[in-house]
Each structure stands twice: as C-alpha cells, then as structure tokens.
Amino acid sequence: MGSEQNYTPHFLAGGGEMGELIRHHDWRGTPLGQAEHWPSALKIAMRLMLTSR
C-alpha cells in the first residue's frame, strides 16, 4: 500500500504550495474518497485551478 500513497494522479500535478498540500492530503478519510475515484468534472476543475496563474 505504500506505493499507492506515493502515486500522484496526473490531474493533481502542478499548483505550487497549494498543489503540494492537495497531493499530500489523505483524501481516503473524506467524503470525496481517493482522488483517482473523484468525478470527472472535479478532476477537470482541479487541473484547471492547479495550472492557472
């Protein structure tokens, strides 16, 4: 399971400090669940925000 924790979905790449916080948060314990299973619209929105200035 350790390798799963190090996996970063491509849509969460970038974003500076906020991106780093999002990537290192344990989403499994939240209502959203693991980032890989988020709805497509949320993944797209996150990617847009993390790659915007």
Rank of each mutant, 00 (worst) to 15 (best):
E17Y: 03
G14Q: 12
R28Q: 07
Y7M: 05
L12Y: 01
E36P: 00
G14M: 08
M46G: 05
M49F: 09
L42A: 15
F11Q: 02
Q34W: 01
S3E: 11
G16H: 05
M18D: 09
H25M: 08
G19Y: 03
L32K: 03
G29Q: 12
G19L: 07
S40K: 08
M49G: 11
T30S: 15
P39V: 15
G29P: 01
H24G: 14
M49V: 13
A41W: 02
H10G: 10
G29R: 06
G15H: 03
G16A: 10
G29S: 14
E4T: 15
H24W: 00
G29L: 09
L42R: 05
P31R: 08
P9Y: 06
L50C: 05
H37V: 07
R23P: 00
T51C: 04
S52D: 10
T30P: 04
T30G: 12
M49D: 03
L32W: 01
A45V: 10
I44L: 08
L32P: 01
E20A: 13
R28I: 10
R47A: 14
L42E: 09
A35R: 06
G16L: 05
L21M: 13
Q34Y: 03
L21G: 12
H37A: 15
Q5I: 12
S52Y: 05
W38K: 03
H37D: 14
P9G: 11
Y7D: 08
M1V: 15
W38R: 04
H24K: 09
R28M: 04
M49S: 10
T8P: 00
H25P: 00
Q5T: 14
M18L: 14
Q34F: 03
L21A: 15
P9R: 04
G2T: 15
H24C: 10
G15P: 00
D26A: 15
L12N: 01
N6I: 09
A13T: 13
P31C: 14
E20R: 07
R28H: 05
N6T: 15
R53E: 04
M46L: 12
T30L: 07
I44W: 00
R23N: 02
I44Q: 06
Q5W: 00
L42F: 03
E17I: 13
Y7R: 08
W38A: 10
E36R: 06
S40W: 02
P31F: 06
H24L: 09
I22D: 01
P9W: 04
G16K: 11
I22Q: 02
I44V: 15
T51S: 14
E4C: 12
M1R: 03
A35T: 12
L32T: 12
T51I: 11
H10Y: 02
F11H: 05
H25G: 06
H24N: 14
T8L: 07
Q5E: 08
L32N: 07
G16R: 09
G33N: 06
P39L: 12
I22S: 04
G14S: 15
W38Q: 08
R47N: 12
M49A: 13
S52L: 07
E4Q: 11
I44G: 07
S40Y: 03
R28V: 11
G14V: 13
P39R: 08
E20N: 10
A13K: 11
M49I: 14
R28N: 09
E36Y: 01
L42Q: 07
A41R: 04
R23A: 11
M1C: 15
Y7W: 01
L42C: 09
H24D: 10
E36G: 12
G2H: 04
R53K: 09
T30F: 02
T30D: 05
S52E: 06
M49W: 01
P31D: 12
